[in-house]
Nucleic acid binder design. Structure first.
Length: 572
RNA sequence: CGGGGUGUAGCGCAGUCAGGUAGCGCGCCGCGUUUGGGACGCGGAUGUCGGAGGUUCAAGUCCUCUCACCCCGACCA
């Protein structure tokens, strides 16, 4: 492609709106433009990157036995009402009415549609397993779109759905997709980290996420990994072993109400009573689907709302307002406690259950109670892990320690089980002629997010450095001076030779000074640059340089195709 | 949704406090010189100052309302 025949509007300065390096680069290098918050336009270079990545995904999905289809973006609201998600997904869903005033949905995922598709058609165990996928635009009205393609309201996604008759078959289908995901992300130039994830949002029994690890602001997800074994989980899901060596009292002491004037936070109470935070227990009030619950966690720990939500099986969970706290505890915020708390189920964290003689709020203004004990002073309705794992906590599976890291979620896999086949009535007949719900899995990959995520790592001060598999073209061909007939003639010949050989070349045929061309070439980040100027022409050669290497090499006109191929292979 | 901020030429910004001819840099167009890391000279084009209403002789500037966008927090590929 000739530069003058395509559209690559590079900018000399960063656009003010972009915070993240990868987002800045895509804007400045002329890959994307913004239309509205979280809505982007893909320019010719981006279009090619998307096609490159989508084709990798397509090849690996096909290899895994998945069948490509295309489902509609529009969906009658009725289907989502049936599955129940019309109400649980809420405002994140883009909704509209058609001309007949029928409620419609712009899909952000396709479990409902795909279940509709196979329901009634797949009736026998003989038709299973089945694996369907599509690569298509998705709509999610995110609370806060940000970081360019990382969190858009309209984006491209590969979504796959598996259907199985037996648990064993389901496990195989799931593992098959996991294997495909590793192949896909490795081909895209990075080693993904697979972590356990919270499955409750999708209503399944298990889930994993694939992360690209970064140490920049783009790492929206926190994950923990074990320094000894292969345990890895999203921090929302991560289990842990409390490794702090606390001395626990042997004898229960009589409880005592104490005045704690002006002390409502953990810091204030520990300072006032001169005790460590591990002796304090926070009682936090939440509203789970409109009903109050009290979560009791040790003073040094943070509540993990995702864990609490799944412990109480809530669809909606939010922190109680100050008014609600006062209504249930009859005390201002900061003094809630379990003793005498009525009509509110109490969930106790296992780390609290181990304690003796701990300190809690007294449900009275400016007062706490010391030497409180579970069983003697109050009853728990449930015990559940509700806190975040922290850096340095023990691994739940071995003697190792947990390490926290930042990552970008580029893919996920969900074991849905029968949630959608139950609600949307997708059943098959087994060998005995008995009707059974189909076991389903769903599997996503962010097609527009992943290339940007890769850029969080693949860049330097001058611009993008694409892995060859995602680069929009392999070669930047730069004649130093378009008005020098020798340069032009040599460049044109190389352009034709490479093109004939099937190598993708971007020929910078602009009437620009060399500095501009070199800077733009570095900015857009093609893996290989061929420069044609007096320096090399006087030896009748071409200068070949990898974008991510300093040194360059002179190659002859007859060997340029072979040399470019060789370098590309080395770069991978 | 809560908190903070910004809307002035394609991009980056000044001008707003203190009302009085709408500016700067880059980019863009023309001519000439230049050509191995974002050239130089001369000439030129480009604005509903986010929108609506109001105050005023006069509004980019003051007031009211409104829209959009960005950043930080509230469970997301």
């Amino acid at each position: 492609m000739r530069w003058t025949q395509t559209y690559i509007p590079t900018l000399r300065e960063n656009q003010a709106e972009a915070e993240l390096i990868s987002h800045q680069l895509l804007l400045r290098a002329g890959y994307i433009r913004k239309l509205a918050a979280g809505v982007y336009l893909y320019l010719p270079l981006m279009q090619r990157v998307i096609e490159k990545f989508a084709n990798i995904v397509r090849e690996e999905m096909n290899r895994a036995g998945a069948l490509e289809i295309t489902m509609a973006v529009l969906c009658p609201a009725e289907l989502w009402q049936k599955s129940g998600r019309y109400f649980s997904v809420g405002k994140e869903q883009m909704r509209l009415k058609d001309r007949h005033l029928h409620d419609m949905v712009l899909c952000g995922t396709h479990e409902e549609t795909v279940t509709y598709l196979i329901r009634g058609e797949v009736k026998s165990y003989r038709q299973l397993p089945l694996n369907l996928y599509q690569i298509q635009v998705k709509f999610r009205d995110e609370i806060r779109p940000r970081f360019g393609l990382m969190r858009g309201r309209e984006f491209l996604m590969k979504d796959a759905y598996t259907f199985d008759a037996t648990e064993e078959s389901f496990e195989r289908s799931y593992q098959n997709m996991v294997d495909a995901y590793y192949r896909i992300f490795r081909r895209a130039g990075f080693e993904p980290v697979k972590v356990e994830a919270d499955a409750s949002a999708m209503g399944g029994k298990a889930a994993h996420e694939f992360m690209l690890l970064v140490d920049t602001a783009g790492g929206e997800e926190t994950i923990v990994t074990c320094d000894k074994c292969d345990y890895a989980a999203n921090v929302e899901k991560a289990a842990f072993r409390d490794a702090s060596k606390l001395s626990v009292d042997r004898v229960e002491k009589p409880r005592e109400v104490v005045d704690t004037p002006g002390a409502s936070t953990i810091e204030q109470v520990t300072a006032y009573l001169k005790v460590p935070a591990t002796r304090l227990v926070k009682t936090l009030l939440y509203m789970a689907d409109g009903k109050p619950v009290a979560a009791m966690i040790r003073g040094d720990r943070e509540l993990n709302v995702a864990k609490l939500k799944s412990a109480v099986h809530a669809v909606e969970l939010e922190m109680a307002t100050a008014e609600q706290v006062e209504k249930y505890t009859r005390a201002p915020v900061g003094f809630a406690g379990p003793v005498g708390l009525k009509d509110v189920p109490i969930i106790v964290d296992p780390l609290v259950a181990q304690l003796k003689n701990f300190i809690v709020g007294a449900n009275a203004d400016q007062k706490h109670i010391t030497n409180v004990n579970l069983g003697r002073d109050f009853e728990a309705s449930q015990t559940a892990d509700m806190t975040f794992a922290r850096h340095g906590d023990g691994c739940p599976h071995c003697e190792g320690r947990l390490i926290t890291k930042k990552g970008i979620e580029v893919g996920n896999t969900f074991m849905l089980g029968t949630k959608y086949s139950d609600t949307l009535d997708a059943k098959y007949l087994d060998a005995e002629g008995k009707e059974q719900p189909i076991l389903m899995g769903s599997y996503g990959i962010g097609i527009t997010r992943t290339p940007q995520a890769v850029l969080e790592r693949c860049h330097d001060a001058k611009g993008i450095i694409w892995p060859t598999s995602l680069a929009p073209y392999l070669v930047s061909l730069v004649p130093v001076n378009m008005e020098n007939p020798a340069h032009l003639e040599a460049a044109t010949k190389v352009y034709h030779d490479l093109s004939e050989a099937g190598i993708e070349v971007l020929f910078d045929d602009r009437q620009e000074r060399p500095g501009v061309k070199f800077n733009d070439a570095d900015l857009i980040g093609l893996p290989i640059r061929l420069t044609i100027g007096d320096k090399s022409l006087k030896e009748n050669k071409i200068e070949m340089k990898a974008r991510n290497e300093e040194r360059s090499e002179l190659v002859g006109f007859n060997e340029v195709v072979e040399k470019v191929r060789g370098l590309a292979k080395r770069l991978v």
